[in-house]
Design a protein around this nucleic acid. Structure first.
Lengths: 333, 333
DNA sequence: CTGAAAGCGCTAACAC
DNA sequence: GTGTTAGCGCTTTCAG
């Protein structure tokens, strides 16, 4: 618990003014090599490191890219890995921020206001709840909100992904296929619902509203929906969930109800977070390239920072079904 | 790209001074309820959110806990999940920071200097390279450096974990067991090396220096060590690696050399990052409770923040062997 | 109860 | 080449 070394300490030690220290440290012109040396010596001796906060208040550039997430869970963690990977060797620091109030809408607006214009040069927002963010720094959204996006966005092809899931289940012989929906405010979740219906239609299976549950990407909500669906007089033989978290909840509920997975119930998730493979049995799921989502966002943000005026870009990456242990043909009746 | 709304804008809108706005927003005494109402209305109307940076320069407390990591990879990502989980409902925001210069020593000193005393109220540092950090905010280290630690630390029982790994391999019938070491500056890596030797000794197997390779937790370094070890005239039938990343590298190399895992070579890792289960075949490994490491660190940091003067605490959590697909009895000769 | 003024650590004009 | 000055947006005495 020592007081930070400030630029004043360095100035005093080197016998120059704080302005000179600033110039020397930041390599500005107009300082004699001799003075620079003296200052740098003092910097080293004192272990001085400029305060990010203070310097960001005066200068426009901080060299920090912010990633705003609602929470650090498997999905956002993968994105962060992708962002970190893409940012290494670019000279940019990475700052990930999660507000204490993870609830409700508009967390990203709050976080953004608190950080932008000052601390970070640009922001990557993951699964934002509002579309209408205004900011004084470049922004790109990953897995964005429904509605018109006025910022560049990066997401996966959720529609096709959902179709892949349903198609796979149909191929296995399933006809009664349930769906646990995601967060209705996210474009990706809506696309997965459409993909589910398109998949059914392609197989000539009539859509049954009773087989659609509300999951909202929340463990408890998904569990409740699963319970309700499995208690149906004519329950589904397979369920497709809009994300892995929900899919894992379904498996949990199925087991609690005495069903064997995949013998009595097949389950397919979406995302392929690392945890999906670890589950027992390992989860069949639609993989979306989460790290690449992060990396693509970095690419755009860097371009924006470099002054390239991209049109409101929209990037969509492909998905792929990964068959594991939670899917099998339906039991003979 | 709009200019941020500042406290001045609010003051102007509400017809009061910036000082009054500050008091009203922060609930300080000495403002009439009527004025408070007017200010809060303006705040809402303008969507004002105070700048974290500016306020942190004047006031001591920011309500933000910083987590400093060298990079966001599977291990640190798990820690982050644990920290985020433990921090929810505490009212603290979470800020994870990775410097651009991930190389070399002292990255945490630099990050800490840049953030502490200003932006963050406390710091959790993951796998620091230096032990001698001084700071004006409470600090706790996860998986710390070797040497005397003057800050509270949280880590897993690496010694016992390594013993478990070796014991398991011995039980399977292995006698020639190699070891790929970790970062020699980390206490945990050193303990895993000791545990390896203790495990051999307990089984009456003589220690063979030729069966120890340098991995340093880096993919390429571990690969090289694996190549060298497997090229030995009398190669090991099993290898224990100081972390999962290295273990996965070994599997990779083994396959490249035409060996089948686990038939020709058994491999055991350490950590049990989610990726370990996803590998093909799934990795046998020693699980350390990474999320709990993060949660324990939060607990300590919060206690420190609450003014409880803990003695230089040291927490050690238990490990557990998770047998998966990369281990089998050695082939008959 | 409210506002003017000082200053957190730093950088950018502008003087000297 | 170097120092002085003026803030960045905010909180906090301290007068009024």
């Amino acid at each position: 618990m020592t007081r930070r070394t400030t630029i004043h300490d360095v100035a005093a030690a080197a016998g120059v003014s704080v302005a000179t220290v600033s110039k020397a440290v930041n390599g500005r012109y107009g300082v004699s090599p001799e003075t620079v040396g003296r200052v740098l010596d003092a910097v080293k001796a004192l272990g001085y490191e400029s305060s990010l906060v203070a310097s960001s208040m005066r200068s426009r550039r901080t060299g920090v890219i912010g990633v705003l997430v609602a929470d650090i869970e498997p999905f956002s963690a993968e994105i962060l890995k992708g962002v970190a990977g893409a940012l290494s060797d670019t000279g940019y620091d990475l700052l990930a921020y999660t507000g204490a109030r993870r609830d409700g809408e508009g967390w990203e607006r709050r976080s953004l206001s608190r950080l932008s214009g000052t601390l970070i040069d640009a922001a990557i927002i993951v699964t934002p709840t509002v579309v209408n963010v205004s900011s004084d720094v470049p922004i790109v959204a990953i897995d964005p909100h429904t509605g018109r996006a006025d910022v560049p966005t990066v997401e996966s092809d959720s529609f096709t992904g959902a179709q892949q899931a349903v198609h796979y289940l149909v191929q296995l012989g399933h006809r009664r296929i349930g769906f646990i929906a995601g967060r209705p405010d996210l474009r990706s979740a809506v696309a997965r619902a459409s993909g589910y219906r398109a998949g059914l239609a392609a197989a000539g299976i009539p859509f049954d509203p009773a087989l659609v549950g509300d999951g909202r990407y929340e463990h408890d909500v998904a569990r409740e929906a699963a319970h309700a669906m499995l208690a149906l007089p004519d329950p589904p033989t397979a369920v497709f969930a809009a994300n892995d978290l929900s899919a894992l909840s379904i498996v949990e509920v199925a087991v609690e109800r005495g069903l064997r997975v995949p013998d009595d119930l097949s389950v397919v998730g979406f995302d392929d977070v690392p945890e999906a493979a670890r589950a027992q049995p390992a989860l069949t799921t639609v993989r979306q390239p989460m790290k690449r989502l992060g990396a693509e966002a970095v690419r755009i943000v860097l371009a924006l920072l470099a002054g390239e005026e991209l049109p409101a870009t929209h990037i969509e990456l492909p998905t792929r079904l990964v068959a594991r242990g939670t899917t099998a043909p339906p039991r003979e009746r």
